[in-house]
Design a protein around this nucleic acid. Sequence first.
DNA 1: CGAATACTATTGAGATCGCAAGGAACTCTA
DNA 2: TAGAGTTCCTTGCGATCTCAATAGTATTCG
Lengths: 148, 148
Amino acid sequence: MSVTGTSHTPAVDAYTRLLRAHASTTRCLSSRLLADHGLSINDYEALQLLSQAEGRVLKRVELARRLVLSPSGVTRLLDGLEASGLVERASCPTDLRVTYARLTDSGACALGRAAGDHERAVAALLERHLSDDEIETLGELLGKLPDR
Amino acid sequence: MSVTGTSHTPAVDAYTRLLRAHASTTRCLSSRLLADHGLSINDYEALQLLSQAEGRVLKRVELARRLVLSPSGVTRLLDGLEASGLVERASCPTDLRVTYARLTDSGACALGRAAGDHERAVAALLERHLSDDEIETLGELLGKLPDR
DNA sequence: CGAATACTATTGAGATCGCAAGGAACTCTA
DNA sequence: TAGAGTTCCTTGCGATCTCAATAGTATTCG
């Protein structure tokens, strides 16, 4: 083992860079989204997933799976969104265990207001460092990693 | 905008996948590292950075920069590592503001014990989903994103 | 020199998350 | 149909992180 310099395997190196890239991009984007629209990254992602779902409704379990969040994480995330009136609960007639999260009109408006700014910020950040082709490739590779 | 299906730009899509990939890989690797060696991911990364530094010493500010962590985050991270005896403080003779974090022998041993398991886990996880070439490419692309 | 500015580090407060535990509801099977 | 096992959701707890404020030290420059 050399005194200085990285003696990493490609996989370890890639993972370390994933950690750094996540931390730096999220710090940058999160602060803007929160300051300008009062939404955390996960708030935004949840609203986004709901807005694309059939009937703007999703089971809480499904939301947890897609956000890679624990059950308690979803409960607390939705607590906040419900308190803000952006999401409402709905019960399932055929299975009393499940609760749905439904995007309200107010939530759809909030998402609409935030989406433009946020998507521009994301694109600007990535495009400052990567070419269009590289962004495409990055997305494909990251998409192959486990979702749950 | 279609009722269903993703209508994302490549950049937004890549960023969303970065969020998911980070969440799922970190959840998996973090629980193992913590259970087997009592270290969080950031604990491990900090020890790793120190072990590769000249004299196994790094300014706290430098550690914050490399870990993409806030100043207070570094203070509390090192609080824990100091309490465990894995890292010790050292003062700077030429600048009384700065404090160094130095890896102790005990810290080097702890890192040595954890490194094999953790690196194998990282490699196994990535290799389950990506080819060697893809891992290489992923590392290169992520490395181009901002470090701070 | 001395005031203004910048840098380093810590602390308190608040937000977020996971794990473990527990209750309620569903499914399977004998 | 009764019990066992599973699934869904919530809550208490602890860990971790950021932001804002604070204090001490360095540096810059008129």
